[in-house]
């Protein structure tokens, strides 16, 4: 069975139902609108470029077992499996990856969300504050006193 999805900029994609259902949001909408599937499902937060990429991801992972997603302590301990395909998939520029994270979040494609967040975390890891600021093009908006306070507080992490 096919499902049609419409991006925020009006582009329509037709995908297999089980592929689209990797998105929790779409899955739930399909349950609600069972009888009414002749018009495309609008994804108002997701642009065509991102949607294409999300669908590419879902196509590849269509047969993955669903993972329980809760915030329980132990569940995160399971290593997030990242195969070669995923590694290839994450070779995009960081702006694209950030948009993908947002798209995955709004469509609730959990594995993609985790993959993207891990990617983002890996970028930030071991960066100095200045490097992080450069990365996101943000300005230091602390007063010198506030800066000192945090620096002082940070000391205990080096124990």
């Amino acid at each position: 069975m096919k499902v049609t999805l419409e991006s925020s900029d009006g582009q329509v994609f037709t995908v297999d139902k089980e592929v689209a259902e990797l998105s929790v949001i779409i899955k739930e909408m399909l349950v609600i609108e069972q009888a009414n599937q002749d018009h495309p499902i609008p994804l108002l937060n997701v642009g065509a470029v991102e949607l294409a990429k999300v669908i590419e991801y879902c196509e590849h992972h269509r047969n993955d077992p669903t993972i329980d997603d809760d915030e329980d302590y132990d569940s995160r301990k399971k290593p997030i499996e990242m195969d070669d395909w995923d590694k290839q998939f994450t070779i995009v520029n960081k702006e694209m990856m950030f948009e993908l994270i947002l798209a995955a979040n709004s469509m609730q494609v959990k594995p993609l969300l985790h993959l993207g967040c891990r990617y983002a975390a890996d970028i930030v890891k071991r960066m100095s504050p200045t490097e992080i600021r450069d990365l996101f093009q943000i300005d230091d908006d602390f007063t010198p006193e506030e800066q000192d306070k945090i620096e002082w507080e940070k000391q205990w992490t080096k124990l």
């Binding site: 969300l113 891990r118 890891k125 992080i132 600021r133 996101f136 992490t157």
Partner: peptide, 25 residues
């Protein structure tokens, strides 16, 4: 979005978290 925030920062070590804290409000 909380899910993104949580998921990104929970990968970071204590030192990384503080480096983030030092960047901006």
């Amino acid at each position: 979005p909380y899910d993104i925030r949580y998921s990104v920062f929970s990968h970071l070590s204590l030192q990384d978290i503080y480096n983030c804290q030092l960047t901006c409000k």
